[in-house]
Write a protein that binds this DNA or RNA. Sequence first.
DNA 1: CCGGATTCG
DNA 2: CCGAATCCG
Lengths: 377, 377
Amino acid sequence: MSDKEVTLMENLEETRLRLCDKFANVTESDSAVAQCYLAENEWDMERALNSFFEADMESVFDAEDTEEIKNNRPLNKRKKTDLLEKAHSPETKRRMISEKVDCIDLTEDEPACTSSTSSKGSEVEEGDRKLSLVSWNVDGLDTLSLVERARGLCSYLTLYTPDVVFLQELIPSYAQYIKKRAVSYVFVEGNEDGYFIGILLKKSRVKLHKHEIISYPTTQMMRNLLCAQVTFFGQELYLMTSHLESCKDQAAERMKQLKVVLQNIKEVPDNTTVIFGGDTNLRDPEVAKVGGLPSGVTDVWEELGKPEHCRYTWDTKMNSNKGVSYVSRCRFDRIYLRPATTGPRMSPEHMTLIGMEKLDCGRYTSDHWGIYCTFTP
Amino acid sequence: MSDKEVTLMENLEETRLRLCDKFANVTESDSAVAQCYLAENEWDMERALNSFFEADMESVFDAEDTEEIKNNRPLNKRKKTDLLEKAHSPETKRRMISEKVDCIDLTEDEPACTSSTSSKGSEVEEGDRKLSLVSWNVDGLDTLSLVERARGLCSYLTLYTPDVVFLQELIPSYAQYIKKRAVSYVFVEGNEDGYFIGILLKKSRVKLHKHEIISYPTTQMMRNLLCAQVTFFGQELYLMTSHLESCKDQAAERMKQLKVVLQNIKEVPDNTTVIFGGDTNLRDPEVAKVGGLPSGVTDVWEELGKPEHCRYTWDTKMNSNKGVSYVSRCRFDRIYLRPATTGPRMSPEHMTLIGMEKLDCGRYTSDHWGIYCTFTP
DNA sequence: CCGGATTCG
DNA sequence: CCGAATCCG
Ligand SMILES: [Mg+2]
Ligand SMILES: [Mg+2]
């Protein structure tokens, strides 16, 4: 080998060692495992990471398939009763807990009405015609204990059985895991790689007609707006989620994105109820600066009387996941409602935060709390 | 002398030398002049400075008394015609220019009507029943070329002959100079020392009934609200000026002060027209945050259709007085109008910026442009 | 993925 | 008497 070739080889080795360190660091594995996954994926960090997490998720999923049956624990062993008290309808939720929770499935429920002519609509109890919704930024970019945290998310979904789930900060392996666990849901994703948003729709109650992905032309963080047009017991719904540009210094871009969201809400025909939910990263003055919410659109938390117990969806004092030294809390996650002017009028009924249980790993499901909320027709 | 006494003397000398340096620096004089004024004023910097500026102002005033007659130049020699073009009513203004301008006096004008029963009211031309107003932060805290800049202000007042003048950032010697020059005006001041605000009222047209000073309880910059209740051709007017807390980081205090201003505007009886003008240091979101202007109160610049030519009253690109390296511009100086609901309705007619001529010293009258504006009854 | 203080141009 | 970037707890 020439001197030049030797130098090149040394550089390559150095690069690969650095890649291994990074990989091991991110995956909480060691350099041997790192070397293995990276070599198998042509030293492409992203492919290697996806491959690692998918494998890991799959193995966890397989393990839980049996483990969960034995242990019957949706979140962790220590605080099952505490958790039960948090459920909105304890009687209903308790039934869920006693079921096998590896797959989130409620096939005993009647299917969703695909039109108002359905004969089944009148057979269901009034309570079941309530729409339940979860919106949650699951912080898939934080890979520490991500498998256990994904399991935590699925346990909360099992516990609450929401009709609609808006998720933000998914990564491919996390999304893959959800797809395998949440078989009773249709899953719509906002992207294929990087990190992205998604919507889960309960097959038995929500019928998906079409979905669309609207891009933010100037995002620097791959953010977009994911929409699903559905029917829910004869009502036309337009469901929207997004993860608006993060951090205070991105206020300008975030406000542009909010305008896109509000414009799209306004353009939905008024026979259709619109529900937007997501991690908006908004500060109130930003909403004011874009002129506030258009008439007909309400912030569900505000409409419910600004209850303190579910004001802050991001709180570094209560939630240690971020591991930051400062304390700060914000109402980043928000739900907007634009009821249809025809048919029964959807109105907010209840809102609570979820995900406030520490998992066995000592961390929370996400650095954000999830929002669980219900609407009455 | 003991060693101790020698040391004390040395310290004293050092202190005095430092005081002289500072004085010479501020006054653009030399240490001999400084020594003289400081010694005469028991080494009290403020007294010495006031004494210097008053003397200086007076001497300038005396000098101009003859000089101005010879040169007939309101601002400087180079751009007289440019300046003339800026006058709102060139014909009227030209008459002013050809007059002796050491004292701002228009004794040939009829006196202001003190009540609607006055017989003189109907004799004046309609144009003269327009109310003209100047609001200007004269930056008296910047002592560099302050005498020439004060002369500049007076020249602008001579040129525009406003009925009402709102001034901010006066210092005692500057105020003293104005009082001597503007003999045709009544002068109301917001304070006696430090820096303060003031109102000039044209004796021949505006009759002062009373004035009041409203304090801002939490100001850290000695700011207050100065009000004058007057009659102008039979109309009751309530004139208000203020210099709200400076700098962006004082937004909270500034908004409190704005609320005081708006509350006081609202409390004026509705047979009285209210005009507020001053250096508000406001950013638009701050106005929005306090709930916007109350109904009935308008921002005159906005009501005139937000003309670009008079948007920015503070502009480091156009105005070099601050000598800062950055460029930035703001609409700090604002006029608010709350017309009376009885009698003729005051409405904004015209607005222009003044003070955009460089003086002989190469600097502007202030780091703020002045606002000249007119109202029709 | 914070807000307040500070720096810098 | 600026705003954007940075630091800091
Ligand atoms: Mg995040
Ligand atoms: Mg100033």
